[in-house]
Each structure stands twice: as C-alpha cells, then as structure tokens.
Design a protein around this nucleic acid. Structure first.
Length: 420
RNA sequence: GGAGGGGUGGCAGAGCGGUUUAAUGCACUGGUCUUGAAAACCAGAGUCUCUGAAAAGUGACCGCAGGUUCGAAUCCUGUCCCCUCCGCCA
C-alpha cells in the first residue's frame, strides 16, 4: 500500500509513476474522500470532548446528572454515532481503493509497457549447443514423471513424480535449503499453506488477484501461491527490534496457482502447473538497505544455477512487467535445451515498504524514535519443477540416461537415472 | 466436538460503572549523587488520528465488532484467539 499523505501531497508524481505500471490513478477520488474524512473527525472529536467534559464533571461532583444534561448528552451521543459511521465508511472506501493501487517502480527500472522492454543484464554459459529432448518425453521414457496419472487424479496441469523423479526433486530442494541455511545465513521456516484473507491482503495478492487463488469459502482460508505470502505475514502487527534486522527467512513449500488465464499456453509437461514445490527467500531490511540485499539475493539464486551446471540469464523487468507489489524485479531464467526455451526459475523483487504498510509490520530505529516500515524482499531460490526440467533436459545422455549435477549426488545417492 | 478458565502498556500483573490522568513491579530514557559505575532518589516514557508553521492541544485505543448508559477496561450480545480437562484423531 502506498502512503496516503505522500499520494495526496504529490499526486502528479504518483500518477505518472503508476501510469508506467499500467494503472490509472484517480487522485480526486482519494483527495475528496480524505478531506471529508478529516472534516468529520474534527466535528466528532469536539463533540466527544464536550461529552467527556460533562461526564467528568458529574463524576467529580458525585451527583446525578440534571435533566438538561441528560437530554443534551443524548443528542450529542446520537450525533457522534452518525458522524462516526460516516467516518468509518469513508475510511473503508479509502482503504479499499488504496489496496488496489500497485507499488510504484524504482527510479532505476526501465520504462516500458510490456516484456519487450525488459533488459538482459547478465548471461552465463552457452545456450545453443546441447542436443536434447523435451522433459515430458524424458519423464515418460524413464517413468519418473507421470502426466496422465496427475490428470486422472486432479485434472489438467497436475502431475505425479515417481521414484527417481521424486528423489531428485527432494534432493534438489534439500540441497538448496542447506545452502541458504548454512552458507547464506537464512532461518528455515515451515509456514502454514492455508492462510487467512488478511494475510493475502498483506502480501498484495488480494483484493486484486482473487481469480488466481484457491479458496475454501467455508473457512475463508486461501492456499498460498508462494511462501512469500506467509513469510510476509510473520511479523504482522509487530514492532520489530531493530537489532534483529535484517531478518532472512527461507521456506520450502508447495505453491498453488489457478493459472486459468493462460489456457492453451504451456500445456505440455510440468512447466506451468497448479501445484509446485518452491524454495523461497524472504528478507526484512531497513529502508534503503534493499539495493544491496537485492544484489545478494540475485547472487544467491544464480550461485545455485551455476552449481547445477545450468546456463542462465538475468533479466531486469521493465515497469509494465513488474508485479503488483514489486518496485524492482530481476528474473532468472535457465536454458532448457529440450523444450528449447528459457524457463523462469526465480523472480527476485524488492517491495520497499509496500507490504509492511499493508500488514502493519514496523520497527523502531532507535529507542524513543518513531516507528518506521521496514522494506521487504522476496525471491525464489529456486522453483523446483522448472529446475527439474532443466536438469533432465541438460543431463540427457545419448543412451537415454540422465546424468545429474555433481552437487546433488550426496543427496540422491546416485549419479545417474538409468534408461531401462 | 463437550465442559471450564482467560485475553489489560515492551514484559509481568492489579482494576470489574464516575478521583483510571490504567495502580504496582521489572525493563527502558533523562537527571541528581559519584573519580567512574552500581545502588538510591527525582522525572519521563506507548500506538494512532485530527487541528497547528511549530510549540502544544483534541480524540480514539484494555483481543475484535456491536449494544446498554449522562458516563464503559469494568455491564450485555456476538466473534476470534489462548490455556486446562474430557472425547476423537494422524
């Protein structure tokens, strides 16, 4: 959520920045609501002051109120009730509107309406040489990915991993978690996968992206589309001890996404599915410490790609391609030689104070000073099925077997998935 | 699921219709004292809103939402969460 005062004090600035994210800001709407709200609050406060004064007078004098006082106070009480209802509904309107406004892009982000203006900032390895097959063929040949079982159990865009495939996925995620915990200093967290509505609002997934989320209406619980949602709510409503910053969390969770906007696209294989495993990094940092943190997280994610012997590139997203809550994002894509495409395996973003404002997570820089909103960053490290795809398609040998990256052998217990 | 108990400031913990401006203790901040520190003593200190250039002041906040009342932390209703016991169950 962006700050109401800032929005009102420099409306054109925000309007222009939000336009770059394809959002039309209605400044007058917010401004008028806010002015009305202030007017009513002033009115209500002075009536309450009168009521408090008279009540205290009666109490201090230990007497019964007079008839005149009672009738005056009843009148005042009714007025207060009416005005407060108006204030309340104005505040709901203001908040509801603010919740639909995306985060503003960082100055540093290239302008552009869509992905064509994204910039490749780094590339590692050669993407063209390797001969391979698409992973759905490999997976079915080796009987490690069962698409039809997934479809028969749960429908399209679900899959079943079996045997070596399951073990390989478990190895990859365990290896990643260990690196984040032991090498990078993250604290491992296992959050709930079902979260409350407020938690979804806090991360920015609600109210705007309801159609992407699985939802149990009876309990009003929502399946997380990423661990970011849960990790972002970890300090909801708290004032964090500044000595604890930066906070670095990592989680391995499933991610649940409806993905029905992309019907017909990417239907083959396990590239775009309704449920997938992901390791997620999340940080809380002091304001303006996000630049360095973002660089570090890119480094941490690409390190994993490198260790997995994958070809990768880092893409800086332009304003129009940024996510709702993001102020600046880098995507990391690995080359899948069988599918012959770049796969997004990580998206690393700084959300500045956008999310902490939404769920009222604060910290106090110094004893006695005012509270501030820390910045949050999130990033995959990494998304499992696509990494699995890349490993299978890169590791395919001429005899149909798969050689897995050396770093994983400790976790799998074997070096190859043999063709039968 | 059944029965009972409870949610009060950073923490502990009183208050159960009007001297609550939320006691008291711990922790915290400033000061006095001291060579320095500790102890002691004095003072201060929360979050948010509105008015205001500021100083300052108004108002709201005792899990949350309603209600009763001239007046609610205190009474009533609903709701959420926590604890104990029983039942059920990975």
């Amino acid at each position: 959520m962006i700050s109401l005062e800032k929005l009102i004090s420099s409306p054109d600035h925000y309007k222009n920045l939000l336009f770059l994210k394809n959002f039309q800001l209605d400044v007058n709407l917010v401004n008028n609501l806010s002015l009305d709200r202030k007017k009513f609050i002033t009115e209500s406060d002075s009536l309450k002051h009168r009521r408090n004064y008279v009540s205290k007078l009666i109490g201090d004098q230990k007497r019964k109120p007079t008839k005149e006082e009672i009738s005056e106070m009843r009148l005042i009480g009714d007025k207060i009730k009416n005005i407060d209802q108006s204030i309340n509904s104005l505040e709901v309107s203001i908040t509801n509107y603010l919740l639909t406004i995306p985060n503003i892009p960082d100055e540093d982000v290239p302008e552009g309406l869509d992905e064509s203006k994204n910039i490749e900032v780094k590339r590692f390895g050669e993407s063209t040489l390797k001969k391979s097959k698409p992973h759905w063929e490999i997976g079915s040949d080796l009987e490690i990915i069962d698409m039809s079982a997934g479809a028969s159990i749960s429908g399209s865009r679900f899959y079943v991993l079996r045997g070596y495939g399951s073990r390989l996925q478990r190895a990859i995620s365990s290896w990643m978690l260990d690196i984040h915990v032991d090498k990078n200093g993250y604290l491992e967290i296992d959050p709930p996968y079902l979260v409350k509505r407020d938690t979804m609002i806090g991360s920015g997934n609600l109210p705007k992206f309801e159609e992407n989320l699985y939802h149990d209406t009876e309990t009003d619980l929502w399946l997380i589309p990423t661990a970011e949602v849960a990790l972002n709510a970890l300090h909801q409503g708290q004032i964090i001890d500044p000595l604890r910053l930066p906070l670095k969390y990592v989680s391995r969770t499933p991610s649940f996404r409806k993905e029905h906007t992309a019907a017909g696209r990417d239907v083959r294989g396990i590239k775009r599915v309704h449920q997938f495993e992901k390791v997620e990094m999340f940080r809380y940092v002091e304001p303006n410490h996000d630049e360095f943190a973002l660089e570090e997280m890119i480094e941490e994610a690409t390190y994993l790609c490198k260790e997995l012997e994958l070809v990768y590139r880092v893409i800086k997203l332009c304003t129009g391609d940024l996510g709702f809550q993001s102020s600046k994002t880098y995507d990391i894509e690995v080359w899948a030689p069988g599918s012959k495409e770049w796969l997004e395996v990580s998206s690393i973003s700084t959300c500045k104070d956008f999310q902490t404002r939404r769920n009222n997570t604060r910290y106090r820089p110094k004893i006695g000073s005012n509270t501030k909103f820390p910045y949050t960053l999130n990033g995959s490290g990494l998304a499992l099925p696509r990494i699995l795809i890349a490993i299978l398609e890169n590791g395919l040998e001429s005899d149909g077997s798969i050689t897995i990256p050396k770093v994983l052998v400790k976790y799998t217990g074997w070096e190859k998935i043999q063709n039968k």
